[in-house]
Amino acid sequence: MEKLIFYMHILSPIIGLAFNVVTQILVCRYIKRKGLLQSVYLGFLGGICSIALIELWYYYATIPTMTESLCQFLLNLATFTVLGYCYFHFINLGETARRIRLVRELQEAGKGLSYDEITAKYGAPEIITKRLNRMLKNNQLILKNDRYIIAKPHLLFMAKLLVLLKILFLKKSSEHPHD
């Protein structure tokens, strides 16, 4: 029994991720009024709860020192948080990534598609409209007199941060610096 709880403690970030995934899927499928993003948050909460329970069990079963126990808990929580971030991005890729949408369109077509056929199925107008709707829904933008204005600065901050990172790594501010 002691060995089992020890392994569960070591692997608690993986167990937490499993709880995260299962909770997220169940909420997303069966509680339709919760949006996709809320299901991701609830899944993450499910993962944290499972880790906290495992760590409590480990603490009472093995009685390590409080400092050691706290350090182990923080490490497992940090590892789980990073894994949860990866899962969130996996979901987000399916929701927003152009490459994923393109491979799905190409697979659906079977014998491949020409550039014109691809852009007829999935092109710039759809990409722009979907993103504008998302940003309006999340109050990142507001529409005033048919013109879009920034409402919350969070996305703008992220955009500026990414431009800085692009300059650091790629020595240019965009994929298309002259556009």
Binding site: R98, R147, I149, I150, L165, L170
Partner: peptide, 28 residues
């Protein structure tokens, strides 16, 4: 970082348009 995100390009375009904002057809 590697690829430009359309959402972030759009946000920067709106920001660069100033206080009057940006119409959708400008983005398109």
């Amino acid at each position: 970082i590697e690829a430009d995100s359309p959402s972030l390009i759009m946000i920067l375009m709106v920001h660069n348009a100033g206080v009057n904002g940006l119409p959708k057809d400008e983005m398109e």
